[in-house]
Each structure stands twice: as C-alpha cells, then as structure tokens.
Lab assay of single mutants.
Amino acid sequence: MAAGGDHGSPDSYRSPLASRYASPEMCFVFSDRYKFRTWRQLWLWLAEAEQTLGLPITDEQIQEMKSNLENIDFKMAAEEEKRLRHDVMAHVHTFGHCCPKAAGIIHLGATSCYVGDNTDLIILRNALDLLLPKLARVISRLADFAKERASLPTLGFTHFQPAQLTTVGKRCCLWIQDLCMDLQNLKRVRDDLRFRGVKGTTGTQASFLQLFEGDDHKVEQLDKMVTEKAGFKRAFIITGQTYTRKVDIEVLSVLASLGASVHKICTDIRLLANLKEMEEPFEKQQIGSSAMPYKRNPMRSERCCSLARHLMTLVMDPLQTASVQWFERTLDDSANRRICLAEAFLTADTILNTLQNISEGLVVYPKVIERRIRQELPFMATENIIMAMVKAGGSRQDCHEKIRVLSQQAASVVKQEGGDNDLIERIQVDAYFSPIHSQLDHLLDPSSFTGRASQQVQRFLEEEVYPLLKPYESVMKVKAELCL
C-alpha cells in the first residue's frame, strides 16, 4: 500500500493539533497551500530580480507567473513527485505547466533550498508574528487579574506546605514575570531571523556568478533584492546548502521555554482548584465526569500541561538535527523538520489560546482563602504575639514557653481530632496574655502579614508589564474561544 493518505478522510490519521486544537490561522501558515504558494512567490521574486539585473526574462513571463501564483494543481504535483521522487522539481514542473512561456526560467540558477529553506524562514517569521500578540493578550488578562487582587491576602506555599502570606495578585505576578520573559525572547528570536537568500547549491553562489558572467556586484544585488522582497532586513552571508540548523534550535528553545512557563502556571491553577481557592472557567453544560456528576475538573489547565510537556520535548529534535548536518548538509534534517517545526508552533498556539481562555474567566473564592488563612495564621502570628507581650512588660522566655504549650495543644486538636485551630481562643482565655487581649485582632490582621506584596504588584505592572504590552494595544480586544 502506498504511503500517505487522504487526510480529510475519517479513515486516515490526522494530527489532533490540526484537527482538534490549533487555530485556523496557525494551521494555514503550515498548510501545503501556504507552503507551495510561497515557493511560487519566491520563484517570481527571483525572476523579477534577475530581470532587473539584466537576464533575458520578459515582462510577459513575469506576468504569467504572477497570474498563476494561486493556480496550484495539487493532484498534478503529487503525481509528479511520485514520478520524480523530488518535491521541488515536482512543483517546478507543475508551475511550468500553467506558465508555459515562463517554464524555462522558473528556478533559474537556484537549488531546492532556495524555495525550501527560504519558505521555512518566512513561515517561522509569520508563525512567530501570530504567537506574539496571543502571548501579549494572556499577559494582559493576567495583569488585569493581578491588579484587581493585588491586596487580597492568601496563604503562600513553599514545598506545598503553608508559608508566609502573600497576595493573590502577587502570586499571579510570578506567572506574568515568566511570560514577559517569554514574550521578550519570542520577539528577540523573531527579529534575529535572517533570510537564507540566493546562495546556490553549497552556499557559494557559483551558479549565479556564472549567470551574471562573473559580476560579483550583481550577485550581491540579486541576494539583497530577493531578501528585501521577502520582507527581511538581512540575509546570511555564510550558508551551506541550507541555512544553519542552529536557527531551528533557537526558535524551538524559546517555544519550549514558553511551554515550561505555561505548565507551571496551569499546575498552580490545578492545585488551587483542589484547594477550592480558584477555578478555571466551567461552562453551564460542561460535564466533569461521566460517573461523578459533582466533579469540576480543571480540564483546560490539564490540557495545557499535557501539550506543554510535548512542546518542551520537541527542542531535542533540532538539537540532534543540527549535530548531524555533515559538511554542507545531509538530508537527516528533512523529514524531522517537516514534523517538529509545525508541531512546535501548533502546540504553542494551542496552549496560548487555551491559557487566554482560562485567564479571561478565572474565578476566585475569597471566603475559602480566608478560612485557610484562619487555619494557619495563628501559628504564624506567634512571633508577633511574643513581641507584643514583651512590649507590655512580659518575659520573652516565659511567653515563648506559654505559646509553645498552647500551640501544641491547638495542633493536637487540628491533627488528632480534625478540629479547627483554636490557638487564639486559648490565648484569649489565658490570664497571662490579658495585657494584649485587646491587640489580638490587630495582630491577626492578614494584611499585616503580606509585606509589600501589593506595592510590588503595582510597581511591576507599571514599570515592566504595561510598557512591554504597549506595541500590542491594537490587538488586545480579541477574545479566545474554545470549541473543545
């Protein structure tokens, strides 16, 4: 049975990233139509530049190519590739079939990587351009969430054990800070992308030097003109047959890092959902379990974690691919890159769409948070109580021993009897502590235990987050809708 299948058929496997999760716009960027249309555009740009620099290419040939950029006979191309065992030459023939007058000058002087690699770089750039505003929107939604809850005390956790208090907004800023680093890295790697350009079979530009009869300047002009037509500021000066596969490492490393950030955020949300302090959106008709109707599973956060793990592992592909590119190139890269580049971007696209949807509907339960604080705060307040007693004339050592005994009794009630923490009640009825009984409410005010959390939130948002989001103001209103 021949390899390949009808990918629109229910009898043929289709990647869930495309069929179930990723956005239509990201799927289109990695589609065959987008790819092969870009090949034709690159052939047109090459012909236009070659004509401008004096090669015998007519206006009629150029116009014929322009008129057929979208006229792609995919069936013919597939048949040609089956016959020739070469995808680029299959599309040269297919393009030439609908451009008979231009057929002889299509791909003039070029090698397969002229269309293959340059198209990949265009796709990487455009895919990054799709991700950047999506990530900015996630940051914006979380920034709104953090600002609104900047002063809401909550129990902090280290080692997932109760620690000092923080605020809900401050905790959210930990998430935002990681995503801001990801946004900066995505922008950097996007701006650092260079075009492969017009380089020939081993990167020496020998074929173009021959076409222009040894004119170095025209060869350099050709490279520059096509690079500018493709919208790049610069091209690699040095290439082998391909652009260095280190570029793929750079791009997928940034995406993998984004995956790590999203995994951490969504894990926190899942843990908070278990504590009943916070939940992701839950639709009115949504079913959490087929057997347990009360369940409210954090399905979206779980999906993000599941896909983020996949995204983090994909960076190993370009690392290994770059390491086995012998001399000017081997074909070890080809099949692998067809999979890992598309999957990385479709996965990143999915987790950003999902995280935006989550961040637009996060639900906080202040009463649950308050109750958990009441359970733990008495123990945390013991040092403040000791200091207040010393100020009232008591002995630190005597007070410490009193607190120690009462704390152990209260802990026994919590752990052995399943009761509430009654340390404060014990202190309130103990005559030894009568000098500070009137101060206990103040000493137990949760806001006095959150330090500068709310001020940190305000400063972080104003100095770091809002300036970073400013270039994306025009796209901030787009909502994230999930079908599944």
Rank of each mutant, 00 (worst) to 15 (best):
L255G: 04
L55V: 09
P133M: 11
D349Y: 06
C180M: 13
A143Q: 04
G418E: 01
D11T: 07
Y466I: 13
S412A: 10
M278Y: 06
N384W: 04
M476K: 15
R300H: 14
Q161K: 03
I373W: 01
N353D: 10
L362C: 08
M278T: 06
P293T: 00
V198M: 14
L272K: 06
T450H: 00
P446D: 02
S140L: 14
S261A: 09
C266E: 05
V189I: 10
S447F: 15
L108I: 11
Q161M: 03
S448I: 14
R296V: 12
I122N: 04
K233I: 11
Q416D: 14
L55G: 01
G4R: 14
S447M: 13
L255F: 11
Q456H: 07
D430E: 13
S207K: 01
L307I: 08
T354I: 15
N71E: 12
C180L: 11
A206G: 14
E81I: 00
S412C: 11
M292I: 01
K415G: 05
A291C: 04
T202K: 02
D59E: 07
P293V: 01
F212T: 07
H107G: 00
M181E: 11
R194Y: 11
D32P: 14
M476F: 15
I72S: 07
C340W: 04
K187N: 09
K477W: 08
T204I: 03
V315G: 07
C483I: 13
G361T: 13
L275G: 06
L341A: 14
K218M: 12
Q375L: 07
L314Q: 11
I424E: 12
S454E: 14
Q325M: 12
K35Q: 14
A411M: 06
D129I: 13
I373H: 05
N353H: 05
Q184G: 11
V429T: 15
G240L: 00
Q221E: 14
V251M: 07
V247F: 09
T354R: 02
I123W: 03
C27R: 14
M26D: 03
F460W: 05
D73E: 08
R33L: 10
S412Q: 12
F28E: 07
L44H: 09
C305T: 11
T354E: 03
M389H: 06
V413L: 08
L258A: 13
K147A: 14
F157W: 07
F327R: 03
L193Q: 13
L55H: 08
K101T: 10
E302K: 04
I358M: 14
E462V: 08
P298W: 01
I265G: 05
M89Q: 02
P281S: 13
H97L: 13
Q458R: 13
D182R: 01
G104C: 12
L255Q: 07
E383H: 02
R404F: 12
G259N: 00
V92C: 12
P153Y: 06
V138A: 13
R452H: 06
A49G: 08
W39V: 10
V363N: 06
F195R: 02
V226P: 01
A18R: 09
A22E: 07
A136T: 15
R141H: 14
I287Y: 02
G104W: 10
T111S: 12
C305P: 02
T204L: 04
M76G: 13
F28R: 07
I72K: 03
L319P: 03
R396Q: 01
L155H: 04
C172S: 11
F433E: 03
F433D: 04
D129N: 12
D333W: 00
I339Q: 15
I386E: 04
V457R: 03
S289C: 00
K264C: 05
E64D: 12
T330S: 09
I176G: 03
E64H: 15
L124A: 09
I123L: 13
K246I: 01
M299Q: 12
I373A: 07
I105F: 11
R83M: 10
Q161V: 03
T158H: 00
L193M: 14
T242I: 08
A431G: 11
R83S: 11
E417A: 08
S334V: 01
I269H: 02
T450W: 03
T239L: 06
N336V: 12
Q375C: 05
C340I: 15
A431K: 12
E277A: 01
L211T: 14
H97S: 08
R396A: 05
P298H: 01
K479P: 15
S112E: 01
K101Q: 07
C180S: 10
P378E: 04
C305E: 01
N384S: 13
I122G: 02
L469C: 15
G109K: 01
E283M: 14
L275I: 15
N336F: 02
I287H: 06
M89A: 08
L252K: 03
E343C: 07
L443Q: 02
T321R: 02
Q456I: 07
A411L: 06
I57V: 09
N336H: 02
H86K: 00
C180E: 05
D268H: 08
A78H: 07
H263S: 09
D349M: 10
R188D: 06
V363C: 05
D11Q: 13
S474G: 14
A335E: 01
P366T: 10
Q320M: 11
G200I: 02
E60R: 10
T202L: 06
L484I: 09
F30Y: 11
